[in-house]
Simulated assay, not measured.
Amino acid sequence: MDLLYSLPFQGSLSMNQKRKGLSLRRLFSLVFFLAMIFLIGNAFITVDYKEGIAGWSSIIRLNLAKLKMCKTQLRPPGSETLPRGIVASTSDLEMRPLWGAKRDKKPKPSLLAMAVGIRQKESVNKIVKKFPSSEFVVMLFHYDGAVDEWKEFEWSDTAIHISVVNQTKWWFAKRFLHPDIVSAYSYIFLWDEDLGVDHFDARRYVSIIKEEKLEISQPALDPNFSEVHHQLTSRDKKSRVHRRTYKVIGRARCNENSTGPPCTGFVEMMAPVFSRAAWRCTWHMIQNDLNHGWGIDFQLGYCAQGDRTKNIGIVDSEYILHMGLPTLGGGSAENKTDSGKLDKTKTPHAADKSSSVSTGRTEVRKQTYVELETFKHRWKNAVKNDECWIDRFQT
């Protein structure tokens, strides 16, 4: 009996063990499968996470680089809040139509600017006619208030007229020839009104200074009929352009070794011609409160864009006559006739007026010397106080 009952029981136990083993194997397989899924999924998540981090890092780096680039971009003062593409930082003196089709043309390549009075209108007319209207903008600074009287000339309507009474060429230039305004022009002619131009051609002159690479220049003065203050500017009949003189001037012995004024690197102030870059520098040197500009001519070498002995020159083949007429202070025709001689036909009243005029001219002359000393003093102090400035012409 015991044997009979024990056999079925043992068979049942063996069957249960098999079932339990099968269940364990299935459970193990499931656990293994789930574990593999977890590991594989975790790997993908990690890759995505790393890629996400890398992507954000790249974006941050790009933004930082952009921010750094934007900070280093030079924008004109006052335009920082504007989008870069809308900023028009320069201008020109070209006239624009009030209506109709836009005239799509380039600005004229050069500018002639002059301080003028109506008493010298014939001289000024001759000068302006030497500058072709297709290549030069003409800008007149009227120091006597007379503007309408110039309308008789055919070129007057296309010229730019600025009128302020009793101001000098340098006063006008500082206020109306800002470098950003005249940046469109390759050359700026800043001339006086008392010049004879019978032997001058503006086109040829520009061609010469381009070829000679002159940043600052002037036409030579006819030594036989001109008021010549510096030997360097006197015409040399044997040359097309000269850059130095070899004469003894005061204590200066001018020779090949001379490096500055009055022997080389110098032009006078009655008819200077500046390149765009040279004018930008010169404009900054003009003092706002010193009207006559005395002293600037001896420092123009610092604006010559390099070696002043090479980049400043006198053009001999296109020369002018400097009449030296005193105008500001009441001079002009009351002091001199066109030939520069005294007018002996004046009445007593006219003589009194002439005396007053003479006094005015004397005061103007005194002021020019005062301003010269002021400019020299300011230059000396500026050199002393600027620790970063290097004098390229110091010997």
Score class of each variant (00 low, 15 high):
M1W: 05
L3V: 10
P8E: 07
S12F: 06
K20W: 13
G21S: 13
S23G: 11
E51P: 00
E51K: 15
W56S: 08
S58T: 13
I59Y: 12
R61V: 08
L62E: 12
A65N: 12
R75Q: 08
P76K: 07
S79A: 13
T81H: 09
I86S: 15
R96W: 09
G100E: 01
R103E: 14
L111W: 01
A113L: 02
V116M: 05
I118V: 09
E122L: 13
S123P: 00
I127L: 14
S133A: 13
F136W: 01
V137A: 00
G145N: 04
S156K: 04
T158K: 12
T158P: 00
S163Q: 09
V164Q: 13
V164W: 03
Q167V: 10
W170Q: 07
F176S: 07
L177G: 07
H178R: 15
I181M: 14
D194N: 05
K210E: 10
L221Y: 14
Q231V: 07
T233M: 03
V241N: 06
K247L: 14
A252E: 15
S258T: 11
P262L: 03
C263V: 08
T264P: 08
F266Q: 15
R280M: 03
W283Q: 08
N288K: 12
N291M: 02
N291Q: 12
H292V: 01
D297V: 02
D297E: 15
C303W: 02
G306D: 07
D307P: 07
N311F: 06
G313Q: 04
V315Y: 05
E318R: 01
Y319L: 07
I320F: 05
I320G: 02
L321R: 14
D338I: 11
S339M: 04
D343F: 02
A350Q: 15
V357D: 05
T362A: 10
E363F: 04
K366E: 05
Q367R: 14
Y369R: 13
L372A: 06
E373T: 13
K376A: 13
W379Y: 06
C388R: 11
I390V: 14
D391G: 05
